[in-house]
Design a protein around this nucleic acid. Structure first.
Lengths: 396, 396
DNA sequence: CTACTTTTTCCACTCACAGGACAAAGACGC
DNA sequence: GCGTCTTTGTCCTGTGAGTGGAAAAAGTAG
């Protein structure tokens, strides 16, 4: 099927498209209330948008005391693809133009198999979503990868955990394969955008989004915009020193945060504890599964296992200390904690909060919420859809 | 004298004023090359600026191969006041509209004497500059204070080292006294703006400006704009934990960077070393002066004193470790080191560089210059002038 | 002095946009 | 059922911003 390739012709149209995306169907009159344009001008722009088929008429709105207004909505056939490539699994979801998830698939996968293998799988998953009747095609896709990205070109640069991806033209290649515009970003930035669009960060201009998964990263949002740094590696906090002369890290240093707390570190510590018979609970799980992961630790902690709780608490303390420093430096209005380990829940959050509130000055922490992300694995894919829609809903 | 209170009427005029400020006198034709406006439109806007007397005609430019163009420059009678209030001294300078310093006074002063006493002194210094014929009046003033500021209102909030200033309406009060528009900001942000305008950071969009004086702070520039955080305390890195269970700090915690390295900490450590007779050089200075300051340590280090060099090196290491974390997080394009301790020079810089290059990932440090500020004490006052001129040279 | 450049001014034309007038469509009171 | 009021949508004209061409003004180069 031929997809709509139209783009807004000017900033007014872009503005209207974003209002419709974020606020859902709207009457022409309601739109007029929000955009500060004359009725004539608004009518012209809406008519032009209708011509491009980016938006469609959608019946009559309820009366507000007089003549009923015609409803306008984004074309219900528009479809965005959100792809969140993690270290050990990949999420693919289809959304409509309002960025509501229509279908979502998660599959385990090893990012180290390289871009070709991974994208084969991603394309298969996208095809599956298409086959289930959720989409006839995609109008754009937003991809998150677990490493730094040269954003304008959509190319990973020197990603530590994904050798073989360095310099691979992700944007270019996927755009070819999918036949639609593609944008690529760090997975943490996508999560931040997701929580900003549909999660806990809806009303905050400056916030941090800490993702604790296989590694640790941090999305930085300044004035509502993701900040990516000079080389695209901003937010790479996994290798900040958390423990002087601490554990050796894959990066060559010692004491990196990621070496002391992350999905991988937690699994390793739990296995160690189980082998040393410090915890019957963990030992049992190790025996029955063969390996331990962060999920097992979460379950053990939920069952009240002291060793598991200690591991989480200590990790939370380390993470909290680092975040305390970032809070002093960045003075955010909100800190969101997300990623695979959110299953660790309240124990983790409490440890982090304690450290941050203790380690930063009152002016920075006084009114600083530190909360778990509320979208879970959907944050990344929604962020992806948001990324590409921001791109498409901007003047050509 | 009646000052010019005119403001640019639109963004084009604002653009032109900033071009003239940053590029000095310019011919109409040269301006046309830079602003992407039609010749007719440009002529209209320039004429209007001439009417407001914000800019004046200034003879003929050199020929570029044909008819000579008329030169345009900012009104040479415009004067900005830059005020940099430090913990122990205050800098006041007059600049012209191109932000060139015409006169600069520094006086010792204790910020803890409170806003009334300090501003009395500042006003006296401004009067002195006026009396010396450098200015007939001021068209605007930019003030830097050593603590967090609620920027829009220009009011210090909960400043640790300046009790008595909390909530004092600095902007309002000084605007009254000086009879001109005033903007107030953290002194570190002013330094960053100064180095950005006329110093080492001229071409960099995202950078950090670490000021090591009585305390330690960090100016954050994102996309060419100073980032101040949610409550105005962004960049307050003096109380990031640098040493676990380290020295007690005035803030109530232990191991804060500021407790281990800053002008105050350095003076204290040097005095200790002198009293313990670890260094003949420092002991001699202590005896002759009665007290020791960072300047003495710098002098001793320059004379090759091992103890002084050790103190500087260790402080540089601590600072470097913290900066390494910030570099990982923020991925700046440049790090500027400035403030009172720049006298410590190369030894300090070398220590910081070592830690940053060792402690951050190559992608972030690969092409990251770490340099001393090149403006010294002028950075703050130029930054102040820049602050107010940015405000005045924006559409009303 | 002539030919060519560059700068400046002048002018006609386009275009975006505002805002008023009016028609269409519904709510509401009687 | 009917007139009045409110809201919405359309049409039309006026205004002001801005563009681009033509020509005059003021140079340079030979």
């Amino acid at each position: 099927m031929r997809r709509m390739t139209a783009r807004p012709a000017n900033s007014h149209q872009a503005r209207l498209l974003r209002l419709l995306r974020d606020g859902g169907p709207n009457s022409r009159a309601q739109l007029g209330d929000q955009v500060d344009l004359s009725r004539s001008k608004l009518a012209v722009e809406v008519d032009r948008l209708l011509e491009t088929e980016l938006v469609v008429a959608d019946g009559l709105a309820a009366s507000r005391g007089g003549r009923r207004s015609h409803n306008i909505r984004l074309n219900p056939h528009l479809r965005f693809l959100g792809v969140d490539i993690g270290a050990t699994s990949v999420d693919v979801a289809v959304t409509n133009a309002e960025l509501e998830i229509l279908g979502h698939i998660n599959q385990p996968m090893d990012v180290r198999e390289g871009p070709v293998a991974v994208f084969e799988q991603v394309l298969a998953m996208a095809a599956k979503l298409k086959a289930s009747g959720l989409a006839e095609g995609f109008d754009g896709a937003g991809i998150g990868v677990p490493g730094p990205v040269r954003f304008p070109e959509g190319i990973p640069v020197a990603p530590p955990i994904m050798p073989g991806w360095d310099g691979f033209p992700v944007r270019e290649a996927l755009s070819q394969d999918l036949g639609c515009p593609v944008m690529v970003d760090n997975d943490v930035n996508l999560m931040a955008m997701g929580e900003q669009h549909a999660g806990v960060a809806r009303t905050v201009a400056d916030f941090l989004c800490v993702k604790i998964g296989t590694g640790i990263g941090c999305g930085i949002v300044v004035g509502g915009e993701v900040y990516r740094g000079t080389t695209g590696s901003a937010g790479d906090i996994g290798h900040i020193q958390a423990v002087p002369d601490g554990r050796p890290c894959a990066c060559g240093n010692r004491g990196c945060l990621e070496a002391h707390f992350s999905g991988a570190a937690l699994a390793r510590d739990a296995t160690e504890a189980a082998q040393q018979r410090l915890s019957a609970e963990l030992a049992g799980r190790l025996e029955s599964n063969g390996t331990l992961s962060a999920v097992d630790v979460a379950a053990a902690a939920a069952a009240g296992d002291a060793t598991a709780l200690d591991l989480i608490r200590e990790g939370g303390n380390r993470t909290g200390q680092v975040i305390a420093g970032l809070v002093s430096f960045f003075n955010p209005g909100l800190v969101v904690i997300g990623g695979g380990v959110t299953g660790l829940g309240h124990t983790l959050l409490a440890a982090i909060r304690t450290q941050v509130y203790r380690g930063s000055l009152p002016l920075a922490t006084g009114n600083l919420p530190i909360v778990l992300g509320e979208l879970g694995p959907a944050a990344g894919v929604i962020g992806g859809a948001r990324l590409i829609s921001d791109h498409l809903f901007s003047p050509a």
